[in-house]
């Protein structure tokens, strides 16, 4: 490796460290700072009148601020106080209502009852349909609000926060549906196992739950990493 490559590598190391500190800024702002710093290093080298050697680069970098000092102090330096996305908050408020209405809808004896072997609606039919509407619409609205808030947070370039909240809103119900389908699939497979293989059946059931948890974690991790 020749000296020029080593020098470039050292400069890039410094610039990468700075970029890491300013990762909260918009890409354009970060690029501007990095380009200015690159120009600054070159001019500082020239002003020393020295040949570009690693020692000179080290001397210039030593005179400059350490990468940590570029970390933006949003409250003070930038004058911007990030706010939590309101849409994400609304989604988070709706989320438990969606769970509650679904649970109440599904629990026997609340929305319907079984009398003499016949299942009947316990509540008036008009209300029952409204309830079903809520069970359907609340998860849908929560998911849409989550997706909207994710785009809003991304577009705000640091002005809005609430990424975990937005992700929970957007992913909770889709993951729940996905889990349900996965477990149903596993139980369809289990149903094909002939009687008398209790240990195998139990193991497969346990495996399906573990599989669901792992898949959920992978989906959540991918979604988290994809968010800037």
């Amino acid at each position: 490796m020749n000296e020029l490559t080593v020098i470039e590598s050292r400069i890039n190391q410094y610039l990468d460290a700075v970029r890491e500190q300013i990762s909260g800024l918009s890409p354009d702002e970060a690029d501007n700072i990095i380009d200015d710093l690159r120009g600054h290093i070159d001019l500082a080298m020239q002003s020393r009148g020295d040949q570009p050697t690693l020692e000179n680069v080290e001397a210039v970098l030593a005179e400059m601020d350490p990468p940590e000092s570029f970390a933006p102090d949003l409250d003070e330096t930038m004058g911007v106080v990030p706010k939590v996305s309101r849409i994400a908050i609304i989604g988070a408020v709706l989320l438990p209502f969606g769970i509650l209405t679904t649970i109440l809808y599904l629990i026997p004896g609340i929305s319907y009852s079984t009398v003499d072997g016949f299942t009947t609606n316990k509540v008036p039919s008009v209300f029952w349909w409204q309830w079903l509407f809520l069970v359907t619409i609340l998860p849908l609205v929560t998911t849409i609000l989550g997706l909207v808030s994710i785009f809003q947070i991304r577009a705000s370039k640091g002005g809005l926060i609430g990424k975990p909240l937005a992700l929970v809103d957007a992913l909770f119900y889709p993951i729940l549906v996905f889990d349900g389908l996965l477990i149903a699939l596993m139980f369809m497979i289990i149903a094909t196992i002939p009687d008398g293989h209790l240990a195998l059946t139990e193991s497969l059931a346990l495996l399906s739950y573990i599989l669901v948890i792992i898949v959920d974690l992978i989906i959540a991790a991918i979604a988290w990493l994809k968010m800037p």
Partner: peptide, 20 residues
């Protein structure tokens, strides 16, 4: 220092107050 001036220049550019 650099860490105070360059972020301000980047912000002025972002806000449309300065042009590069």
């Amino acid at each position: 220092t650099e860490s105070t001036v360059y972020p301000i220049l980047a912000r002025l550019n972002k806000d449309g107050l300065a042009h590069v």
